[in-house]
C-alpha cells in the first residue's frame, strides 16, 4: 500500500484548510494538509479576533494553534513550509510533488490556499523591505518615531493604519491612485481630521530609492504624468489582497480576479476538486466564512469519496 496516498489532500493550512482537516479526520477520512507557509494562514497575522463566536477574545496565533491541535488530534497529517513543485488534478488520482521530491496522491483535493498582501512590484521594493518598507504598522511603526513616512492605499486598512502610524511618525503622506477612497466613511473622516496626515491623490509609486535604507520614493501623478522624487523615511503598503491561485491558472476555472469559481457545495470545474476560504470567489472574507467554506468542502469531499468507493465496489 502506498503510504503517501490519502483520501483527501488539502492544499493550505489556514482556517478553511484546518477546518476541512478537522471534519475529514474526525470522519476517519485519511487526510493530509500541505501548506506552503506557516499554519494558520492570514489568521495567524491577526493580533486579536474578538468576533469568533464562542470565543470572546483570542489572538490569531492562538486560534491557529488550537485548530492545528484539533486536526492533529483526529489523525490529520500536516506538512507545512513546503512548496509544491508539480501537481496533477485532472486524473482520477490527483498528485502533488513537493520541494523535497516526495509525491503525494489523493482521491480528492480541497484547495484552500487563501490570499496574501498585494505588493506594488516596483523597483527597489524587494531590496528595501525591512529597511524602510513595511506591510505591518503594528510591527514596525515604532521604528518611525518622529520620522516622515508615506502610506500607500485607499481602503480601510490604509486609512486606519495611517491614523495609527501618527502615534509615531511626525508626518504621514497617504498616496492613492484614485481621486476618492474605498474606505468606510468613518475611516476617511478620521484620517482627514488628523493634522499629521496629508493626501496625494491620483498618484502612484514608481520606485523606491535608497542604499542602506529607504531614502525616497518616485511618485507619478496619473493626471499629469509628472514624476517627482519624494524624500521619505518609510513606506507602509496596504493595497489589498490577492488570492494565491497563480499556480492554478488554466488548470482550474478562475474568475477575472484569479479567484476560484465554486458551486454551492464548494466544487470546482474539476471532478474531485473542491475549494474554500479566501481563494474562492465570494464577497466576505472572514475567519468565520473560511471555517464555513472548509466545512462544506470537507462534507462534499467526503460524499465524493463515498460515491467513489461505491462505484469501485460495483
Amino acid at each position: 500500500m502506498n503510504t503517501n496516498h490519502y483520501e483527501v489532500i488539502i492544499i493550505g493550512g489556514g482556517p478553511a484548510g484546518l477546518t476541512a482537516g478537522i471534519y475529514l479526520s474526525r470522519a476517519r477520512v485519511k487526510t493530509l494538509i500541505l501548506n506552503e507557509g506557516t499554519i494558520g494562514g492570514q489568521m495567524v497575522l491577526t493580533h486579536e479576533i474578538a468576533n469568533y463566536p464562542g470565543v470572546e477574545s483570542v489572538s490569531g496565533y492562538q486560534l491557529s494553534n488550537i485548530m492545528k491541535r484539533q486536526a492533529l488530534s483526529f489523525g490529520c497529517e500536516i506538512r507545512s513550509n513546503i512548496s509544491i513543485k508539480e501537481f496533477n488534478l485532472s486524473q482520477k488520482v490527483k498528485s502533488f510533488v513537493i520541494s523535497d521530491g516526495t509525491t503525494y496522491t489523493g482521491d480528492a483535493v480541497i484547495i484552500a490556499t487563501g490570499g496574501r498582501s498585494r505588493t506594488l512590484g516596483v523597483p527597489g521594493e524587494d531590496l528595501l523591505k525591512g529597511r524602510g518598507i513595511s506591510y505591518c504598522a503594528t510591527c514596525d511603526g515604532d521604528f518611525f518615531t518622529d520620522k516622515e513616512i508615506v502610506v500607500v492605499g485607499g481602503g480601510n486598512s490604509a486609512l486606519e493604519e495611517a491614523v495609527s502610524l501618527t502615534k509615531y511618525a511626525s508626518k504621514v503622506t497617504i498616496i492613492h491612485q484614485f481621486d476618492h477612497f474605498q474606505a468606510f466613511e468613518h475611516a476617511i473622516a478620521e484620517a482627514k481630521s488628523n493634522p499629521k496626515i496629508i493626501f496625494v491623490m491620483e498618484s502612484t509609486i514608481t520606485a523606491f530609492y535608497g542604499e542602506e535604507r529607504l531614502e525616497s520614493v518616485g511618485i507619478k501623478n496619473l493626471k499629469t504624468d509628472e514624476t517627482i522624487n519624494f524624500k521619505t523615511d518609510g513606506a507602509f503598503i496596504f493595497i489589498g489582497y490577492v488570492p494565491n491561485t497563480e499556480f492554478l491558472k488554466e488548470r482550474v476555472n478562475l474568475n477575472q480576479w484569479g479567484e476560484i469559481v465554486v458551486g454551492p457545495d464548494m466544487s470546482t470545474d474539476i471532478e474531485g476538486v473542491f475549494a474554500g476560504g479566501d481563494s474562492i470567489t465570494k464577497r466576505y472574507r472572514q475567519v468565520t466564512t473560511a471555517v464555513s467554506d472548509g466545512t462544506i468542502a470537507a462534507l462534499s469531499a467526503s460524499a465524493y469519496i463515498n460515491e467513489l468507493k461505491k462505484s469501485t465496489r460495483i
Binding site: V44, Y61, S80, N81, T138, C139
Partner: peptide, 16 residues
C-alpha cells in the same frame, strides 16, 4: 522579534 505578523512565521519556520 515580537509576537507579530512578520515575526510569527519566522519562529514557525525555525521550530520546524
Amino acid at each position: 522579534g515580537r509576537m507579530g505578523p512578520m515575526c510569527i512565521p519566522v519562529y514557525g519556520i525555525a521550530e520546524e
